[in-house]
Design a binder for these strands. Sequence first.
DNA 1: CTCTACTTTCAAAATGTTTTGAACGCAGGG
DNA 2: CCCTGCGTTCAAAACATTTTGAAAGTAGAG
Lengths: 178, 178
Amino acid sequence: MHNSLTAVSNSTVAGLGRLARFFGFSDVMGRLYGTLLLSPDPLSLDDLADGLEISKGSVSMNMRALERWGMAKEVWMRGERKKYYAAESDLWQVIRNVLGSREQREVQVALQVLSESVEKLKEAEAELTPEEQELSRYYLDRVVDLQAFFKVAQMALETVVGSGESLDFDAVTRIEIE
Amino acid sequence: MHNSLTAVSNSTVAGLGRLARFFGFSDVMGRLYGTLLLSPDPLSLDDLADGLEISKGSVSMNMRALERWGMAKEVWMRGERKKYYAAESDLWQVIRNVLGSREQREVQVALQVLSESVEKLKEAEAELTPEEQELSRYYLDRVVDLQAFFKVAQMALETVVGSGESLDFDAVTRIEIE
DNA sequence: CTCTACTTTCAAAATGTTTTGAACGCAGGG
DNA sequence: CCCTGCGTTCAAAACATTTTGAAAGTAGAG
């Protein structure tokens, strides 16, 4: 294959590996995704293992993870006994999958814990010494700050996750500032 | 100290540790930040090491990282030889620091690599066999998709980073969808 | 300048994560 | 059925990160 095609493929695959790590996935997941994205045809586990020079076991596990995250789909090739995979090539769909399941859950949990903290502090107030009450009010202030922060995050996520095919460039620049 | 205060402190500190890991920082950084955030007064390295039951060496290194990220500040206590730290309590400032230095650089690099890929593919076009040309066009499509994606990310980051004191809740809900 | 109370550094140890490959399981063809 | 060609699993090995603590560095008080 021509030099330049190989070079582009390598840097794209490597870049997606990097991006995957950045998002808390494994490097291999990103590279598998990249390899599939740049392949006009679906690839088998062996194709992927050979292409990335990693073990088949690793490909198997990581491909299942990619499937769970909605980043790749199994493709049935008639007359073939092998499994074939293709990348989900709508990047916005991928982002919505990830933000929708993982990040939203994180934020949800955080908000949950923070509400419980507010509860606890309010309930306990009566039993506190004056000194403790002062600290309790301090905690309450900080916890409320965190709540405000996570609520904005939650709204931002909902906006992205709930959006249609893709976000409009111009629209994003129209986020207004206080 | 009262039970409930300890419980709230623990869960908040643990939660910020989790969040830190989520953002690609170390757990300890998050817990140090949390401890400082919940302390009405600045804390010394020893206070922090004792409070979190980790070594002073670790506290020293992680606090310097927190400082570099603009998440904590050194506070001079007169008549004291120890170093004291306080959390940067404006969470929006913290987010802007992180997005501004780290995430923006990532996106920048990605866009750079993608432009180079487009260049390479266009330059090489003439030398390609017909079959390679087809693959090249396929690559170009995928690379352009990625570019579009990162450009939106770049704009979103610029919006947050360039914003003033804090983002308005309502405003975030007004991001428009294509 | 020296002493002392601190902070920083860093190499070794502990811990955590990823990768591998051999063993196993399973389905379809003969 | 059994055989074959695949996919999956999982324990052990390789690798990476984090933590520790002891040694070295540093700054201020006297």
